[in-house]
Structures are given as C-alpha cells and as structure tokens.
C-alpha cells in the first residue's frame, strides 16, 4: 500500500519561505496571488500492508513521532485508494 503524508505549518506559524514564493510569483506577473504556504509531501510505500485502519494508525504514529513536529506542524495522511481516485 502506498501512502502520502502532507506536512504543513500550523496556522499562525510564520512561513517566510511561503512569503518569498508569493513575492516571486507576484514579481513574475501572476496577478491575484494571496497568502502562500509551503509544506512537505512524504511518500511511503508499505509493501504487504492490507488493512487501511491499522496502516493509518501506524502512519499517524510516524507523523507524531518523527515526520511532523506537532509544535509547529499539522499533518494529513492519504492512502493509496484515495490517491488513485484523486
């Protein structure tokens, strides 16, 4: 089973990189660019995993322990079935 994990800065945490990207887009002539936030996408392959519920529990544990810093970041877990349909 494949999973995608999106790690994003929490609301209220300053994102200077996102701001710089926003300025660059405006500088390139793209009109109407508002707030820009930069995050991370982590793809994880879990060969042999079948049960979505237990995989999700495991991935969320990974996020809390390492992949995201709960002080500053939120995370979202997407499993293969959702990835294919999207």
């Amino acid at each position: 089973m494949k999973a995608r994990i999106f790690v994003t800065l929490k609301d209220g945490v300053l994102d200077p990189q996102g701001k710089a990207i926003g300025h660059a887009l405006t500088g390139l002539g793209f009109a109407g660019v508002g707030d820009v936030r930069q995050g991370k996408l982590i793809e994880i392959d879990l060969p042999g995993a079948k049960d979505e519920t237990s995989v999700r529990t495991q991935l969320e544990e990974m996020c809390r322990k390492l992949l995201a810093n709960p002080v500053i970041e939120d995370f979202k877990v997407e499993l293969a079935s959702q990835i294919q349909s999207s």
């Binding site: 945490v13 300053l14 200077p16 990189q17 710089a20 810093n69 002080v71 500053i72």
Partner: peptide, 15 residues
C-alpha cells in the same frame, strides 16, 4: 525536537 525543551526553531525570518 527531543522535547527536553519546549518550542521549535524555524527558518530565520529573513531566510
């Protein structure tokens, strides 16, 4: 990161 102290250290504001 080890939670021995609170908070986090982000990218410098001026990048």
């Amino acid at each position: 990161e080890a939670h021995l102290l609170p908070g986090a250290l982000l990218r410098n504001a001026a990048l």
